[in-house]
Structure formats: C-alpha cells, structure tokens
C-alpha cells in the first residue's frame, strides 16, 4: 500500500470503515488504522497534514519472530495476520512492534463488542489484533481493504506489488513512495508519498 499524504483530507472515513468491517474496540480508543493530525513548523511558517497510520505489513516483521506459538503468520501476499485461536495473549508482539500497530482484544472488549456490533461478532477469543488489509473480510473479488474502498481523497493506493502495471508498484519502483525508518530493517510494505507538503528531508525537521 502507498499512502499519499497530500491527498488525505483527515475525514476519518477510513477509520470508520475499518472499525465497522473489523469490529475494532473504538470505545478503548484502539484502532487498526487511524489518521494523525500533525501540525508542523512555527508561526507563521506552519503546515497541517494528515497522516494515516496502520500496520506496515513488514516483510521482515519483528512481531512474527517473537510470537512463541506461531499465532502471528504471514499469509499469501505477504500479509501479516494473527490466528486468534493460537494467540495466548502474552503481548510480546505488542512490545516488539516499533510502530505501535497492535493491541489486545480482551474478554471485556468481546463483551462490549456484542452491544455495538450484535451477537455474531467476528472476534471470538481474546487475542492480539492488528490490521490484516481486511484479509478474508473484504467483499468477494475485491481483496481491497475497507480503508482503501472508503477513502474519498484516494490517499491510499492498494494493489499487488508483483504486478508491474499496478499504480502502487510504480510508486514503489520510482521511489516516490518511501519507506519510513528503513534503518529498522523491517522492510515495510506500506510506504508514504510525502508529496509537495513534505519532502523527505523535511521530515527530520519537524
């Protein structure tokens, strides 16, 4: 996925769509994705940008290697998912994720979820939850995450990186979409197009 920062309006439609599709515990202020409202610079040279955040779907994911039971798995397309039946809730992966993209879905959350989402909730065991690019929950044939389907500004570009014709592949290959913090060595598959409002060099200065 490539995130075009210039095109994010900060409307939070992606957050709402993800919350409903994946029944995330919003009452705890825990999300699979959210949009950060960032103010940068000092008056009068100030800027305001919206930065969507989600699991970076790392190619070399620290959360995968620390999981003692193999509950964290890498499935087709390199998507990192959690098998909630295998997850014992040690939260080692929550500690290991440098992006803070994981949280615990507790017994309490499961009970509350029933009052918000109805009796047939998709989470049936306490487990660590995270963005899965809507793996196996996206409508048939689309394979597209809810946040991408709902984005009014077209800020999230999603596709198969093995297909050279996809827009996301071109953004990656031309270097327009950059990996944040490459020094971590996790090889994130969610990259950011910093655009006009923010060149790569400026990132360090705000």
């Amino acid at each position: 996925m490539a995130v075009l920062i210039d095109q994010c309006l900060g409307c939070d439609a992606c957050v709402a769509a993800c919350t409903i599709e994946n029944q995330t515990p919003f009452w705890e202020e825990l999300w699979r994705t959210h949009v950060e409202d960032v103010e940068m610079g000092t008056y009068p040279d100030t800027q305001r940008i919206f930065v969507p955040r989600l699991c970076m779907q790392c190619e070399n994911p620290p959360c995968y290697y620390v999981c003692p039971t193999g509950a964290t798995q890498i499935v087709e397309g390199g998507i990192v998912v959690v098998d909630e039946y295998k997850c014992i809730g040690c939260q080692y992966c929550v500690e290991a994720c440098p992006f803070g993209a994981r949280y615990m879905y507790t017994y309490e959350d499961m009970q509350k979820a029933k009052s918000y989402y109805g009796e047939n909730t998709i989470h049936v065991e306490p487990h660590v939850d995270k963005c899965t690019f809507c793996y196996e929950t996206a409508p048939d044939g689309t394979n597209t995450p809810a946040c991408v389907r709902s984005c009014v500004g077209g800020a999230r570009v999603f596709g198969c990186l093995d297909n050279p014709d996809e827009k996301v592949t071109q953004l990656f290959e031309t270097g327009q979409a950059v990996e944040l913090n490459p020094e971590l060595g996790v090889k994130a598959k969610v990259r950011y197009v910093l655009g006009k409002s923010l060149s790569e060099g400026e990132v360090d200065n705000f």
């Binding site: 193999g70 509950a71 939260q91």
Partner: peptide, 26 residues
C-alpha cells in the same frame, strides 16, 4: 497469569516458534 489465556500456555510447546525468546524461556 500474565497471559490472556493461561491454560493455552501449552501452545508454546505444541506450536513453538524457535525464533521467539519466550519459547526458549519456557
């Protein structure tokens, strides 16, 4: 009791992933 599912701790031995330090700890 620090686990969300204490009785599932046996999964560490059943489905162990050797890259995990917690597996080795057990």
């Amino acid at each position: 009791l620090s686990l969300a599912k204490p009785f599932d701790f046996v999964y560490i031995l059943l489905f162990h992933r050797i890259s995990s330090r917690i597996t080795w700890m057990a």
